[in-house]
């Protein structure tokens, strides 16, 4: 066991970890940040995506000990300072980009990473970027619309496909 410290959603947070403690477990079990979900064990589904030093990372496929000192943002850190839904979160609600909500934290975090890299992505770019996030409920169309809307683009054209 060893102590690992990270800056999580702007706050310094520490927990004791084993070598095998995954970042997802550090967040969920160590810090009780259960917004980050685990949906598979082969790094495919992306429900666990968080930002590590600003980059999208599958938190179930990274050891907490390997990320000592990192800056981590989870879905719990995506709301506005006043507690209202952040821009991406609001777009997902507005465009019905979620149903059961389980993949949603990963979708929101991947979207944050995408828009940081590419503020005005095309539909193709959105679909390609989200290939590492599996959603079983929505059929993706409304997720894509939400991402486009969050980037400030007109989603009317997409809706009329």
């Amino acid at each position: 066991m060893g102590k690992v410290t990270m800056t999580v959603n702007g706050r310094a947070r520490s927990a004791e970890v084993e070598g095998r403690t995954l970042l997802s477990s550090f967040l969920r079990d160590g810090l009780e940040l259960t917004g980050t979900h685990v949906g598979c064990d082969t790094s495919q589904c992306g429900a666990c995506v968080v930002l590590v030093n600003g980059q999208a990372v599958k938190s179930c496929t990274a050891f907490a000990a390997d990320l000592d000192g990192a800056e981590v943002t989870t879905v719990e850190g995506m709301a506005n300072p006043d507690g209202s839904l952040g821009r991406i979160q609001q777009a997902f609600q507005d465009y019905h980009g979620l149903q059961c909500g389980y993949c949603t934290p990963g979708m929101v975090m991947s979207t944050a990473a995408l828009l940081a890299e590419n503020p005005k992505p095309t539909e193709e770019e959105v679909r390609h970027y989200l290939e590492g996030n599996i959603c079983r409920c929505t059929g993706y169309q409304n997720i894509v619309r939400a991402v486009m809307a969050a980037s400030g683009q007109d989603v009317g054209a997409l809706a009329a496909e």
């Binding site: 969920r28 940040l33 259960t34 917004g35 980050t36 979900h37 685990v38 989870t74 879905v75 719990e76 995506m78 709301a79 839904l85 979160q89 997902f92 609600q93 979620l98 059961c100 909500g101 389980y102 949603t104 934290p105 929101v108």
Partner: peptide
């Protein structure tokens, strides 16, 4: 949606 989008859903594993 508000609870799901902010990480405040309460799933069984939580």
């Amino acid at each position: 949606d508000t609870r799901f989008l902010t990480g405040n859903g309460k799933y069984t594993d939580d």
